[in-house]
Design a protein around this nucleic acid. Structure first.
Length: 472
DNA sequence: CTATGGCACGGATT
DNA sequence: AATCCGTGCCATAG
């Protein structure tokens, strides 16, 4: 394996060293930024050097290694990705909103973890700063479906504000992507989506009414009764039902995270900060991948040499304090290096294994486990787990995905499934889908097909029509 | 009778 | 040790 980061030979590990490395590894670049910032402010032994820039390409460099792009041998293997630590200015966390830290604490599942942050970024520009707390509270209270099950009164009481104000914030949240998040019921979510959709599409008459008044009948598919209630012929009711199942999603969070496209209709001010950025260079056969592990600092963290000098003739009463500062500082620097080193090695390997996925998309994702990678790299499994958890990657397409997606065991099958359903001329049952998948080389039980379908938010065959339009 | 969702079990993964 | 995931069995809706 070429291109290692030269500088870090691993020294004898103290337990403190180990513990801190572990901690740092699990942090996102934003959290890292916070940590270093406070340390920098309180510890005189640390200093941040001026940013180092590659003399050739003017690329900012975050470690002491030579510029990986300019020093790279021209005959290098194109499959060998360039991985390095970068401090690109446009990803520096100093630009992030400060409300961030409050959001990501609750014990959410990894998949939904980023939803609150994602939504908050969208609404932040329109949000009264005083309401940030409320928004954060609401967003972290969402269940896995993106619905808010907590009574509004409870939230209002907690923040000592009138319910109407909570409702205003929710209104804002509901109208961001995924549409309808933060609704209290599936019904409400549908109505929000319907409202937006009405601007661009024609909607069967009485759809809103059907949702409002006949939700239970609708979900139970008791169409004839519903028709009776609304005084509509059965054909109209079926039309409404089909429209809803084709265009609306009662559980806003279900199939949406991961589909996040940047820049589309989302607010341009919205900042989604990756911890790792992958870009591709060149075209066709000789595409090179460049992987940047984002360093949250413009410049390099090191021990202040003056401080190191000064400590020799420190006044008696300060000596102990200073020594402690120095130790802490050097520990942090070392651990930081090690964190970066681990991440670089991890990405080095991942970029090779998942090259196809990065370039081609979901269907090419190789199903690998953290454990197998840990073995290859010769590190403990938990190291990989930590490194992978809660990190966001920006792919060359601009898509943001959680790093954990690189370890998704079933994604490739799910995309195959998605494709089958997209192409179907008439709704296929789970068993039929299972058979087709089997022909394609994916052996899955019929029951599993059903689960994947649910994961993707696709309705069962009998209430699916061939109309393959999505929300928006 | 067929298609699907719920529950729960066991093995793999973290 | 805790959690996740695929799967089989069974009840239920259509």
């Amino acid at each position: 394996m070429l291109l290692q980061t030269q500088s870090t030979t691993i020294r004898p590990l103290t337990t403190a060293h180990l513990a801190q490395t572990m901690t740092l590894l699990g942090l996102t670049s934003f959290e890292l930024y916070q940590k270093i910032e406070t340390e920098l402010a309180s510890n005189p032994a640390l200093e941040l050097t001026a940013e180092r820039v590659c003399p050739h390409c003017r690329r900012p460099l975050a470690d002491s290694n030579p510029c990986p792009i300019c020093t790279r041998p021209s005959n290098s293997n194109p499959n060998e990705p360039i991985v390095y630590v970068s401090s690109r200015e446009d990803f520096l966390p100093s630009k992030y909103t400060s409300s961030e830290s409050e959001i990501s604490e609750e014990g959410l599942t990894p998949d939904s973890e980023d939803l609150p942050t994602y939504v908050l970024r969208q609404i932040a520009p329109d949000l009264d700063p005083d309401d940030h707390f409320i928004a954060a509270h609401i967003l972290t209270s969402l269940d896995d479906d993106g619905l808010l099950r907590t009574p509004l009164a409870e939230i209002a009481h907690y923040h000592h504000v009138p319910i109407s104000r909570i409702e205003d914030v929710i209104h804002l949240i509901q109208h961001s992507d995924p549409l309808g998040v933060g609704s209290q019921t599936p019904q409400e979510a549908l109505l929000v989506q319907l409202e937006i959709l009405a601007e661009t599409t024609t909607i069967p008459p009485f759809t809103a009414k059907a949702i409002q008044e006949g939700m239970d009948l609708l979900s139970r598919r008791q169409y004839s009764e519903l028709g009776h209630k609304l005084h509509l012929p059965l054909s109209n009711v079926k039309e409404i039902a089909n429209f809803i199942s084709d265009n609306l999603n009662p559980y806003p969070a279900r199939a949406h995270w991961g589909d996040v496209r940047q820049g589309s209709s989302a607010n341009p001010d919205v900042y989604y900060h990756p911890d790792i950025v992958i870009t591709s260079q060149g075209e066709s056969e000789v595409t090179h991948l460049m992987v940047e592990v984002i360093s949250p600092l413009a410049g390099r963290l090191r021990i202040n040499p003056l401080f190191r000098e000064a400590i020799h003739d420190a006044p008696q009463e300060k000596a102990e304090q200073w020594q402690e500062d120095l130790d802490r500082a050097s520990l942090l620097v070392k651990c930081l290096q090690q964190r970066n080193n681990t991440l670089v090695r991890l990405m080095q390997r991942l970029a090779v294994i998942q090259r196809q996925f990065i370039l081609e998309g979901d269907s090419e994702l190789a199903p690998i486990t953290r454990a197998s990678l840990a073995e290859e790299l010769g590190v403990h499994e938990s190291t990989i787990s930590r490194a992978v958890a809660s990190k966001a990657v920006q792919l060359p397409t601009g898509r943001m995905v959680p790093l954990s997606k690189f370890f998704d065991r079933s994604l490739h099958i799910r995309t195959a499934l998605l494709e089958i359903i997209a192409k179907e001329s008439k709704p296929l049952t789970d068993i039929q889908i299972a058979k087709i998948l089997d022909k394609q080389g994916y052996q899955v039980a019929r029951r599993t097909v059903a689960k994947y379908r649910a994961m993707e938010g696709i309705l069962p065959a009998h209430l699916r029509s061939k109309n393959k339009q999505n929300i928006r």
